Amino acid sequence: MNKTKQMTVMAAFIAIGVLGASFLWFPTGIARAFPVQHALNVISAVVLGPIPTVIIAFGVGLVRNLLGLGTLLAFPGGLAGAIAAGLFFRMRKTTTAAIVGEIIGTGIIGSLLAIPVARILMDQAVGVFAFVPGFIISSLVGSVIAALVLPKIKPLLEKETI
């Protein structure tokens, strides 16, 4: 994929992530689940690789926060999931690996990284496992979405022209 097409796909994924956050979310305890972000992490890990996936996750989190559609918790969950999904896919070259990376990255690592963010930046005292169930549920739902969508869009993105 050439750089122009890659940047265009990344911008489109950021737009989808922001738009998806306003339509598809659900409460999970003290946090809100945004499964579109997790679906995009898996899809972009498979199609674009780890670095673009992290850039997309950061872009979605930043725009969502600027528009008031999210909280600072978008960063630890989205970025940890993006890194893990991209690296797991790079190691194994399977969609399942990207899904496992997303769930471990967001559900475990991201949820634990969210604790200092909540305490220091959001002034919320939370327990060690306050975010784990919600982050795992969100990443599972997003991974299912990705598994359903990816076979349809991957061939389109791999074409020389769209």
Rank of each mutant, 00 (worst) to 15 (best):
A45W: 03
A98R: 09
G59N: 10
F26V: 00
A12D: 04
N2H: 00
F88P: 04
V128S: 15
A84R: 01
F58I: 04
T4N: 08
A84Y: 03
S22L: 05
P155D: 06
K152M: 13
M10Q: 08
A74V: 11
I14C: 07
E160I: 14
A21D: 02
P151D: 07
S22T: 08
V117M: 09
I14Y: 01
G142P: 03
P116M: 11
E158R: 05
K5T: 04
M91G: 12
F13Y: 00
I30V: 14
L40Q: 01
I109T: 07
M7N: 13
T95G: 10
K3W: 11
G81H: 02
I115M: 15
V117H: 13
M91K: 14
G77W: 04
R32W: 06
P27Y: 03
S22D: 08
T8I: 12
G59V: 08
A39D: 09
V144Y: 01
T4I: 13
G59Y: 02
V54T: 06
E102K: 03
G68L: 11
G70E: 09
L140D: 15
A130M: 13
I14W: 01
I120V: 15
G29L: 12
M91I: 12
L67E: 10
V63L: 14
N2S: 01
A82C: 10
A31M: 04
S111W: 02
L150P: 02
G77R: 07
L113S: 10
I51Y: 04
A12P: 02
V46P: 00
I162P: 13
I51N: 08
L156T: 11
I137Q: 12
L67N: 10
E158A: 05
A114Y: 00
I120K: 01
F129V: 15
R32I: 10
I16D: 07
L150E: 03
L79V: 15
K154Q: 06
G127Y: 09
L140N: 14
A80M: 15
T28G: 10
N41V: 09
F58S: 05
L140C: 14
A147W: 02
I56G: 06
V9T: 08
A57W: 00
F13W: 01
G86D: 09
Q124T: 15
I103P: 10
L112V: 06
I162R: 12
L40V: 00
G107S: 12
V144T: 04
G107M: 07
L157N: 11
P52Y: 00
A74E: 10
A21N: 05
A80Y: 06
A130D: 14
W25F: 07
G68R: 03
A130R: 06
R92W: 05
L113G: 11
K152N: 11
A39M: 11
T96S: 06
W25E: 13
P151R: 01
